[in-house]
Computed example of a mutant assay.
Amino acid sequence: MSIQSQSLTFFSPKTSKSEGAIFFDSGISAGFPSPADDFKETRISLDEELIQNKEATFFARVSGQSMIGAGLDDNDLLVIDRSIEPTNNKIAVCFLDGEFTVKRLRVEGENVWLQPENPDYPIIKITEENNFVIWGIVTNVIKRV
């Protein structure tokens, strides 16, 4: 299933029968290589690592640059959990006036703002006139290198 809006494209996770990819539990040096002779090899499932509540989890691909300061770049894949309680400072996928957007939540009492992580984009104050729903909380970001 795929749903597209102007700034996000949503995907439902597919059930995988895979045993997972091979995982080397020795750590990978970003400096000089380690002369370690033996590696502990196990299998790891990214579903198990990234998804806590499968029924409430969706993926969405980012389109745009409003959250680059939070490490969310154009074309990154977001893991979104709809079962997590939205709170101040969480990064949330929101439905605002007919469009999906991803922003950092700023909550003070009854007031809610959607804060981009790029100074070129405005902070959005949510008012009673807005059609607004917090759709889910971003739990992980998957990047291509």
Rank of each mutant, 00 (worst) to 15 (best):
N118R: 14
G31Q: 03
K103G: 11
F100E: 02
T15F: 07
P119I: 14
F95P: 10
F24M: 03
P35R: 03
Q65K: 15
Q6G: 00
I44S: 01
L46A: 01
N140T: 01
T9R: 04
A92W: 12
F100S: 08
G64K: 03
D73L: 14
G71T: 13
M67W: 09
S7Q: 15
G64R: 06
E85I: 00
S66I: 08
T139H: 04
P122I: 00
G64I: 13
F32S: 12
T139Y: 10
T87V: 08
A92K: 07
A92S: 06
W135L: 05
L78A: 07
L72K: 00
D37S: 14
L8H: 02
M1A: 15
K17F: 05
S5E: 07
G69S: 15
K40L: 11
L72E: 03
S29H: 00
K143N: 04
A60G: 06
I51F: 09
F11R: 03
F10Y: 06
I84L: 13
I80Q: 00
S16G: 04
E41F: 04
E85C: 01
V138L: 09
K143Q: 14
F32M: 03
G69L: 06
T87K: 15
D76K: 10
I22N: 01
A21W: 04
K90L: 04
E49F: 07
A92T: 03
I137K: 10
K103P: 09
T42D: 07
G20R: 02
I3R: 12
D25M: 12
L114M: 07
S83M: 13
N111H: 15
D25N: 11
K40Q: 07
S34E: 05
F32H: 04
A60Y: 08
V62K: 03
R106V: 06
R106P: 00
R61S: 01
S16R: 00
S2M: 09
I22Q: 01
L96T: 07
L96P: 06
N131Y: 10
V112L: 13
G27M: 06
P116K: 12
I137R: 08
P13S: 11
S34V: 11
D76A: 11
R43K: 10
N88C: 00
G109K: 11
W135V: 11
Q115M: 15
R104P: 04
A36H: 10
L105G: 02
P35E: 10
G20E: 02
Q4L: 02
L114I: 07
K103L: 02
P116L: 14
V112M: 06
N131G: 02
T15Q: 07
L105H: 08
Y121N: 11
E108I: 14
P13D: 11
G31S: 03
M67F: 14
I124H: 10
I123A: 09
K90V: 00
Q6M: 03
D97M: 11
Q115K: 12
G109I: 09
K17G: 02
I68R: 07
N53V: 00
F24I: 05
N88F: 02
N75F: 03
E48Q: 13
S16C: 03
A21M: 09
P116T: 13
I84S: 00
A30Q: 04
M1G: 15
V93H: 06
I123L: 12
I126C: 09
P116V: 08
I84V: 15
N130S: 04
D74G: 09
L96G: 08
P33T: 03
